[in-house]
Design a protein around this nucleic acid. Structure first.
Lengths: 331, 331
DNA sequence: TCCGATCCTGCAAACCTTTGCAGAGTGGGC
DNA sequence: GCCCACTCTGCAAAGGTTTGCAGGATCGGA
């Protein structure tokens, strides 16, 4: 019932081989023949059967995308960009959400790997050894995580972070608090390191206030940690935590940024929607997403993939949640 | 290099047919043989080649999921649920984001349809005729939209909406404003109808204030519409609009809910994170998503799919953005 | 006029799995 | 002891596409 290569061939009075070539290696077939075939194929509504093609070429035309949690507003932007870029190159994207279950990741990856040409792993939480194992079987690009000898697209936090710290220093803040994310998180470690360096450079005192879940609730739970510390500004592991914290502060009628400034990382859409709007270090998700796809596609074309580690620069977004220090710590 | 059915057969000393049957129709093969095969298959790490299987069975084991915009916080919850439920049944999900481009939808659907066993269309914006055409070629379940003679999972707005209106009436509001969503939107029409009915029942005066984009910016742009109308409470097409409106009101120092109450639809995660938190009509996304997958899978098993239209009930979430009316409209 | 090169096309095999059909073996009933 | 029914297994074809190889045509050069 579906129209096949044979049908087109029959209609065009040529062999299936010729039709196949007309579609995949156009230069190998006479121009007039090719045109006739293409017209006919379009008329008949021919679409190649990807299963059959995949059977012989060993390629599926699919990419696998693993994300820990679609409900985390950080990821949809990434998924969107990845999916759009893949579609442009005629690849379809399998999306798998692990629901933050680290233990599930390896099996899901194995399952996924069999059905795709390449894998995009977004911020996988898994241990390095397990991760490496997974990346060895299938062409893989890591997103928002780096690993030796594996291609990746990560965010260059340095720039955005130091801009943020300079911004805070410029506002007169001298003691900065940092609320960290989950212990095992690669990007969490990155961010902490960036903040440490930037504070040292700017001559600010950094108070590491502890670690919380990377969620809104994590942020509200950080309230006590923050209030106990003599800081005038707090940088949170990510925007959700920053927002949770801001709301908890508001709950207690502690003004942001009047009494305390708050900043985050990610620039999730919500950061611009709340009041006060959130100062944050923006990750260029769209750029990272398409870069990751480009990189992966490039690997698929290479017999011996060359590892490339791309860093996309982050940028400070100054908004309403940061303001001049009251200098409370000098009292 | 990949281990195939033949390898397992060779190792087990049986024919490929037997291995195939051991895996797909266990009762047709001797128990001991089957056990030996299964053990061996597991040892060798055999995974069936889905392309080959698909070629002969005509099934791909994939489902296609089309959403207008992943960045709209309404959808990730749905996608998550759908993907999880599909994975349980060993189906993979292709996610396609149309980026709100209605004109693109038909072509994307056609493309997708060839590679999946069934289609889940989330709130497709396309015209009924075009939509019907698309649904005729492939087993399809619509989500958040209904169409005659096509299976669907929709939200039963009536209940949640009338609860919301009763809630407002109970707070003393007499004049309610409604800010509508995009003109062609099916769920927009549904919601408007629900609000109309509920207001009529409760004896409230409904002011239809016009239509805006279903986004945060749409909400802020609705400010003037709202201020011009003599209403003490506003119901917005969705939460994003409601939140945009709230922030625009706050910008003008108009207190919510002090001077005006605001409510939305969807119960996106953000609704609980802003201040004041947003009163809204919650859509049970997880339930809808898994119901949609179940329905689709059921269709795939039936030779002549029976159309089923499922409605999942909505529920009112009372939060901080609605409060007693000041009775301004009576002044 | 003949030869070689070049361009285009067709043949046929291959990819891996499923499945209808038939054959072999077993056990039970008469 | 014979036949039938039943269970289990293997054979072979089929599904749609790609691709190495070879053949035919065309053209240019000598």
């Amino acid at each position: 019932m579906a129209v096949t290569l044979r049908d087109v061939a029959l209609a065009a009075g040529v062999s299936p081989s010729t039709v196949s070539r007309a579609l995949t290696v156009p230069e190998k077939v006479d121009e007039r023949t090719r045109e006739r075939i293409l017209t006919l194929a379009a008329e008949l509504g021919y679409r190649p059967n990807r299963a059959a093609r995949g059977l012989i070429t060993g390629r599926t035309g699919n990419l696998g995308l693993l994300v820990p949690d679609l409900a985390n507003p950080f990821f949809p932007g990434l998924v969107k960009a990845i999916q759009a870029r893949a579609l442009e190159s005629d690849y379809q994207v399998f999306v798998v959400d692990t629901d933050e279950d680290v233990a599930l990741e390896p099996e899901l990856i194995r399952q996924l790997a069999k059905q795709v040409d390449g894998l995009l792993l977004c911020s996988p939480r898994m241990r390095p050894a397990t991760l490496r194992e997974a990346t060895e079987a299938t062409p893989t690009v890591l997103v928002n995580r780096a690993l030796a000898r594996v291609s990746s697209v990560t965010f260059e936090n340095g720039e955005g972070t130091s801009a943020l710290i300079r911004h805070l220093a410029g506002l007169g803040h001298r003691r900065i608090g940092f609320v960290g994310g989950p212990a095992g998180s690669w990007s969490g470690a990155q961010r902490l390191r960036g903040v440490r360096t930037a504070c040292a450079t700017a001559g600010l005192l950094l108070h590491e206030l502890g670690q919380v879940a990377p969620t809104f609730e994590g942020g509200t739970s950080a309230l006590e940690l923050v209030l106990r510390a003599p800081v005038t500004a707090v940088v949170a592991y990510n925007d959700l935590v920053a927002i949770g914290l801001s709301q908890a502060l508001a709950e207690r009628s502690i003004e942001v940024p009047g009494r305390i400034s708050v900043a985050g990382f990610d620039d999730i859409p919500m950061a611009g929607m709340i009041r006060p709007s959130l100062t944050t270090v923006a990750m260029p998700l769209a750029r990272a997403g398409s870069a990751a796809v480009d990189l992966l596609l490039r690997h698929l074309g290479e017999p011996e993939p060359r590892v490339r580690q791309i860093q996309v620069p982050t940028a400070l977004r100054v908004r309403g949640s940061t303001g001049p220090s009251l200098g409370l710590d000098e009292s």
